[in-house]
Design a protein around this nucleic acid. Structure first.
Lengths: 341, 341
DNA sequence: CTGAAAGCGCTTACAG
DNA sequence: CTGAAAGCGCTTACAG
């Protein structure tokens, strides 16, 4: 299959008896070229279905108009939502998007960064894999190609980072519980201090503090992966406590759903006995019974924002590295797993 | 940001005082080159972190090693699952993947096909947008670049198509209901005859026929988009019937979940009064109460298979077009929305 | 306003 | 076993 007998600039130039340079410039609307010539060239190009060989162009100009995206897991709903935003924004700006999955594997992530920069993408969008401990490979690629971090970020990397207002969102979620009369609010968070978990925990603490509620370590539970299964397990632990909590704030929707499943098992009334709040507004949130109160994270907006900043960096040919955290707003969606105020 | 001061072949050649040609060949393990030279070159290349400029290489060889993927909606779970398979297989075969969303918009789909083929992808993976009526633009790109259809396919397009054993899967699902004693099985399907809907309906009919159950048009419901909302509506209709069905086979998990929600509302016991079976094994299937009996479609396998066939076509430089339907097996997962046999 | 020429980094017939 | 040279299709200083 090698029929790609595309029209080239040369052919156009020949037919019109002009030079290739002129043809090229006419097509690119160069101010030097006369209107008459431009029209002539552009018409013929149209007629012949001319389209520039983007590979030649990219090779020549050292600009591929390709953006590389690396995410831990593409089948994660929130991630695919961000990707949607990335694709849309990139397309309107005239960029193509190459996608890769790190599978939460740090080595793979490093390798992908290398491959992508070597491939010649104009910029990279990265959501850090879990437990990214060695930042070296990232700093390295940062030297060669613009890079923007989103969702899973780290302040150890000096670059633009697009995140959600994690701390405020968590604060609002917990305050909402307090406002509905809950006084003993448990949290299910991550063991390792990821950026997200840390911020959400900080929001939790601040809400308690501002409302003069004492922190009780017995109802602060940590787990390595905040999964449905772990949500269940943690909730079982909470239920075994002498003083049960009257609300659970899970740092993740899946863990919140695990909590709900555990509460179901013990026939505990939600939200009367124990309210549950999640984080993410995943698609499950309205499938589960009762529907889940949770923080809505605007995935598409995050994606679009990340692309916008990345392209800005690409097109401002400055060699400097921007360190800047862009925060996208979230809002709490109150559903049936907590009381309305 | 233009520090990409990558090592080039020229530099390597110069340092070793050999020609660029030799350096190139040494790196590519060309049989003509002596082992001594090869080693020398490869060692230096390693030391200098040489990596070929893939754009130059692609430009020269007319091979980009990029695959283009076009899907209706990337945030659809099943789709993201397929994508996962595509990414993985492509990576192991040394291809990058450009992803685009058609948003179920036929014009956009055509445009993307054009852009991709003009961009110079080596092959295209396409899941048809809903209501793709005009096949022309697809036939056109089929002339210029290998293309494989997956999931949403059409036999109007002469190319390799990777699908699931839709008819058999539906047959098994309906037969399962029959085996558990259900006699009056409703179906919720699509109005327009998409490939998927048509096959699943055929499987439904065959199961009834083989078990000598009469077809009753009153419990064959069609809707344009087989969504959760529509699943609910259709179920309401079924419940208003004089002779209610004792089972519902929804062509889609989301519609099945809509059905379950509607049945909940009327306090109808699942599966005792009415059993429900879906299709897809979406992530919701175990979140909903009762958990959903459904057909598991191996998304990753579909993705991998599609890539395998596409690359085969790309690398066999034959100019001929293969028309071939590859079927990936599914299996029924029996959960709580239907009886175990 | 237009053209000749160099060159982006690589591969590959051709020659020896 | 190695090298000189052409060329992939384009853009862009330079010259006029």
């Amino acid at each position: 299959m090698n029929k790609r007998k595309a029209t080239t600039l040369k052919e156009i130039a020949k037919k019109l008896d002009i030079s290739i340079s002129t043809a090229s410039r006419a097509l690119n609307n160069h101010p030097d070229i006369s209107d008459a010539t431009k029209e002539k060239v552009q018409q013929l190009a149209e007629k012949l279905h001319y389209s520039p060989n983007l590979f030649a162009q990219g090779f020549r100009t050292q600009r591929s108009h390709i953006l590389g995206v690396i995410v831990p897991n593409i089948a994660h709903y929130f991630t695919s939502t961000i990707l949607k935003g990335i694709l849309e924004e990139a397309e309107t700006k005239g960029y193509k998007v190459i996608v890769s999955e790190s599978n939460n594997n740090e080595n793979k992530q490093s390798e992908m960064l290398r491959t992508m920069s070597q491939f010649g993408v104009d910029g990279i969008l990265l959501a850090l894999s879990r437990k990214t401990t060695s930042v070296d490979s990232i700093l390295n690629t940062l030297d060669t190609v613009p890079l923007v971090l989103f969702d899973k970020v780290s302040h150890k990397i000096p670059c633009t980072q697009v995140v959600v207002d994690e701390e405020i969102a968590a604060f609002n979620a917990v305050e909402h519980l307090i406002n509905t009369g809950k006084k003993r609010i448990a949290i299910i968070k991550e063991t390792e201090n990821s950026f997200n978990s840390e911020k959400r925990f900080a929001g939790y603490l601040r809400a308690l503090k501002e409302h003069h509620i004492e922190v009780d370590k017995k109802i602060i539970l940590s787990t390595e992966d905040v999964s449905l299964y772990k949500g269940r397990m943690m909730t079982n632990i909470l239920l075994s406590l002498k003083e049960r909590p009257d609300a659970i704030f899970a740092i993740t929707d899946t863990a919140a759903i695990g909590a709900i499943k555990a509460l179901h098992k013990y026939n505990i009334k939600i939200p009367e006995e124990i309210a549950v709040v999640g984080f993410s507004n995943s698609i499950h949130a309205t499938i589960i019974q009762p529907s889940l109160t949770t923080v809505d994270q605007p995935g598409e907006k995050i994606g679009k924002t990340a692309v916008t900043y990345l392209i800005k960096e690409i097109e401002s040919n400055k060699n400097e590295i921007t360190t800047k955290t862009v925060t996208v707003k979230t809002h709490l969606i109150v559903r049936d797993s907590s009381f309305k105020v």
